[in-house]
Amino acid sequence: MKKSMLGVIDATMLPGEMGDLALYRSPAAIPFAGRYRLIDFVLSNMVNSGVQSVAIFPRSPYRSLMDHLGSGKDWDLNRKRDGLFFFPSPTKEGQLDRMSEHLDYFHRSDQKYVIVSNCTTVANMDFAPVLDRFIKQNCDILEITHKGEPTYIYLLSLDLLLRLIENRHETGYESVQAAIEDEASSLTKCHYEFEGFLKRIRTVDDYYQTSMQLLEKDKWSELFNEFQPIYTKVKDEPPTNYLAGSYVTNAMIANGCIISGEVNHSIVFRAVTIGKNTTIKNSIIMQKSKIGENCVLEHVIIDKDVSVEDGAVLRGTPEKPLLIKKGSVESAVTSS
């Protein structure tokens, strides 16, 4: 029973309104919640639900996504049988078209059911009760909803998925979503309402607001619990060092940081340094960025490897956070 689900993650989402967050990377690989990438949530949910075979359909650029996933070891998916599969499909556009290029994988799998998911949904969800519902209600295709809205996560039988792929030209369906949205189809469609915390990240605003919500304890604890952990690529960072003069409140901080300044209501990823007399509020600082001394950062999203030089002042607004591109250098002069 447990082994009976395949996981399919469609990571072909276009950057769209993700802006510079998806400049060099797949939206699936956007850093999130201090130490994760967006794909970690769906992938961990699958693994925690007993899925042992996961196929990822990426779109270029996918270097950072591949680098993140590696052999799948950190999700316990480096298996002799099953495991993690990466299926690029550079010439095809539609979801079912892409899958048609990798039919061998589906034919070779002996799992009976398939979860088809997008790559940027942030939630901690057990798919086992979803499968129970699917079987009990004799569904052909099940859509998970949240507050009545679609989550773009589906459960169907492998047989049906294969038929959808094979008949895609006759039906005109480009994706599983198209099949469920076709009111004329004869498929038995069901819904499963997910009650917990769930956000689908599609825009910079989604990203910023959802991140800030994680600083509320009740939201945070709906996403992180010890029984269904969210896995991610392991980095060997030391614990974070809070130096004399640091003042940190209401923050989520990853390992490997050296903090001398003030951090309030913010998320700090691993290996970030924050200099003396610097104030950071309502901001997100991604991994390995260096924030100098005497800086002021409010409502900003600092991508990876950014260097903010001493005395720089960077301000966005709650509605429009200022996004600083990966690898850029912000000096006091350019920012004022």
């Binding site: 919640a33 201090g34 130490r35 304890k217 945070w220 992180f224 969210i230 974070t240 809070y242 130096l243 004399a244 640091s246 003042y247 940190v248 409140t249 209401n250 923050a251 989520m252 901080i253 990853a254 390992n255 951090v263 998320i267």
Partner: peptide, 13 residues
């Protein structure tokens, strides 16, 4: 998950 420093917390050195 990353460490959580609450709104009443004081973390020194």
């Amino acid at each position: 998950p990353p460490q959580i420093i609450g709104s009443q917390a004081e973390v020194k050195h």
